[in-house]
Design a protein around this nucleic acid. Structure first.
Lengths: 194, 194
DNA sequence: GTTTGATTAGACTAAATGGTCTAATGCAGT
DNA sequence: ACTGCATTAGACCATTTAGTCTAATCAAAC
């Protein structure tokens, strides 16, 4: 088990801490202690706490999101199948179901209060929305869905509703409940199938 | 304009601050300065920051929620009408649409991390869920909805989806978008009408 | 008006916070 | 081995944090 480069180790620990405790409640000293890395070392790699977390968002959070939001269809897969599979995959991701989507959590905490975070997180949210809308649109174009379906609107609804369900407190969430609730979203979408 | 009693003034300011900045990012000193109330005065009324916020949750946050989640039908009103009206009322509540539901925001921040808040906020969430489920159930009993509708499940979905939509960052939310998205929830429910 | 208890007032404290600084160390290229 | 730069190390600092303490003030009851 060879030693992880300082910078990478810091980003990993920062993700864990910020994911669960949020930005404000996470202290630099805690991260440093958990990572076993001295202060000077961290301030050599990052200008400060905020820059550390911004880097973590881009290099860890955004990357991890790709592992549970998968909007790229495999060959011969319908849009409905792709979405169903995505929800099943999400339901199997324990931290995701327990603590919610890390992007959404950070948005809720910081977007109203910090411009830089708002821009960074918001742009990723919009990107996600566009990918999802494109997937739905392809379903319309290929005749899987009626053209009564407004891809952009439904994608927006789907995204925020899913985030809402995922981010319910641990004491009120479970894999089973997540699937139960997400089924209503899919049911709704199914209304638009030919 | 007569002077508001210390305790009440503190609860008001605390609500404003915690609503927007969250629990961790809100400092006692800030509250005190905004309220123009000295420290000793606050610590006479409350044991500490946490107790102040817990009191605020019960005496302000919970009370305000009753003004936008209205599940009690007026005479002759169908369940669908009640819900539509509720969503319209919510969409007109500017802070609600801009910053999201204060209960949900606090849950996202604290439930995973603090037992007392988890219990207090969670119990209110469950109460809300039960009220909504009861409303839906009454719709089933009175023949407005098919008995294929599972009141409890749908209520859970409705609640978390609505929270998710409401709590989108200010830069991505508006009254119009809120209504657009909430319509999908109602549309879904409508498929269960006779 | 005096007494009594509640409240106000704010100086003070200890700990935690994010951040700086300088010296030591490692390590690559020569 | 020597040089030069990147990195590590952690003591140190100023500020902010939640919280304490004692004295002053107020208001109601007598």
């Amino acid at each position: 088990m060879k030693k992880q480069p300082t910078r990478e180790k810091l980003l990993d620990i920062t993700f864990d801490e910020v994911y669960i405790h949020g930005y404000s409640a996470t202290s630099v000293d805690t991260i440093l202690k958990k990572a076993g890395i001295p202060k000077g070392s961290m301030y050599h790699h990052f200008k400060g706490k905020k820059e550390l977390v911004l880097a973590m968002v881009q290099e860890r959070l955004f990357v991890k999101m790709d592992t549970f939001f998968i909007f790229k269809r495999e060959a011969g897969e319908t849009v409905m199948q792709r979405l169903r599979n995505t929800y099943v995959a999400m339901s199997k991701n324990k931290p995701l179901v327990t603590y919610g989507c890390p992007l959404y959590r950070l948005m809720v905490e910081l977007s109203a209060v910090d411009r830089e975070f708002d821009v960074l997180l918001g742009s990723r949210a919009m990107q996600l929305h566009q990918e999802l809308a494109a997937l739905l649109q392809s379903g319309i174009d290929e005749g899987e869905f009626t053209n009564k379906l407004h891809a952009e609107s439904f994608a927006r609804f789907m995204l925020s509703a899913t985030w809402g369900i995922l981010s319910m407190p641990p004491s009120l969430s479970s894999s089973r409940l997540f699937l139960e609730q997400s089924r209503f979203i899919l049911e709704n979408l199914e209304t638009y199938t030919h």
